[in-house]
């Protein structure tokens, strides 16, 4: 499937000959990974995010444009592409994290269950409670392991000790960390290894029971063994959550994701600067085995240019 090709002069209209990706049925997609239930979901799962003609500016600089995609429930969607292609920018719009960057603003629409996330009525805090995020570098609080996981639930007003104990345990189990840390829950989280810290960050995110977990290159600071554990974990978590992951690692996208979005950066004719754009969006197996766009093919075969 190919996103509307670059036609920066006019904003892509839904009525143009090449319909936005969101309108395409996905039932033709082959089974992406050995997980039949997920394959069924490719066609039937309800949309979580519907992104139409999204563009993001930092001040006057347009960082990314032409993003059209639908992200579905209980899928892992991977964003891949070279540096500067805007994949992290788009991810950070999906829970309003970009609000923290001075001068950032968006055009187009980004709907979450039909609600425009950038509607002035929408509270970024509320959005982030539902749409959690795991960052590139593990960033636990300088608190104990227990308090890291209990942080989110406490924010939502849970004070009951027994209830918190239970949330901490289930969250740490969900992040495959419980057995390693159950005897030292009171120790500082900063004493853990990088891989453990990242799983703790996942546990911390899971503890607030979000619907979506956004992951921004969650393995880039980890060694291969820790990376494998996180990937395994993502496969387990996707039965409960919808996951969107930004990765520099194409093999990782191919291994874990159901759907892949390929971004690239091209010269923006209106600004004489490079601007990211979505090139292709579709089932992972199809995108990697039979890319529809030459740029996708060049990138995944290593002939990026």
């Amino acid at each position: 499937m190919v996103a509307t090709p670059a036609s920066p002069a006019s904003p892509a209209s839904p009525a143009s000959s090449k319909a936005p990706v969101t309108a395409r049925p996905l039932h033709a997609a082959p089974v992406p990974v050995a997980r039949p239930s997920a394959a069924d979901m490719l066609s039937v799962a309800e949309p979580v995010f519907e992104i139409a003609d999204l563009e993001v500016y930092y001040g006057k600089f347009r960082a990314v444009r032409n993003v059209n995609m639908t992200i579905r429930k209980h899928q892992i969607t991977a964003f891949i592409g070279p540096s500067g292609c805007g994949k992290t920018t788009v991810l950070r719009c999906m829970n309003r994290m970009n609000d923290l960057v001075a001068g950032a603003r968006v055009g187009g629409t980004l709907r979450y269950h039909g609600v425009d996330l950038y509607d002035p009525q929408v509270s970024a805090t509320e959005v982030r409670r539902r749409i959690g995020m795991v960052f590139q570098k593990p960033n636990p609080f300088p608190k104990s392991i227990y308090d890291n996981v209990a942080y989110g639930p406490r924010l939502s007003g849970i004070r009951d000790r027994a209830k918190l104990d239970e949330i901490v345990e289930t969250s740490l189990r969900a992040a495959a960390l419980w057995d390693e840390v159950k005897d030292r829950l009171r120790d500082s989280a900063l004493g853990m290894s990088g891989g453990q810290q990242q799983r703790l960050c996942i546990a911390r995110t899971v503890a607030v029971e979000p619907e979506v977990v956004l992951m921004d290159e969650p393995c880039s600071a980890l060694d291969p063994i820790a990376t494998a554990r996180i990937e395994e974990l993502m496969r387990e978590l996707v039965s409960r959550f919808t996951i969107v992951i930004v990765t520099h690692n194409m093999q990782q996208a191919a291994r874990v994701s159901d759907t892949t979005a390929f971004f690239t950066a091209e010269l923006d004719p209106s600004a004489d600067r490079r601007c990211g754009l979505l090139v292709e969006f579709g089932a992972t197996s199809k995108l990697f085995s039979n890319p529809q766009d030459e740029r996708t093919e060049n990138y995944i075969t290593g002939r990026f240019g």
Partner: peptide, 24 residues
């Protein structure tokens, strides 16, 4: 910034972020 985002990412308000990230 990552320490601030840790709190914001969990739905903290600005004040809650200050307590969780800036203060320690």
């Amino acid at each position: 910034q990552p320490e601030k985002e840790a709190a914001y990412g969990l739905g903290a308000t600005r004040w809650e972020m200050i307590l969780a990230s800036v203060w320690p």
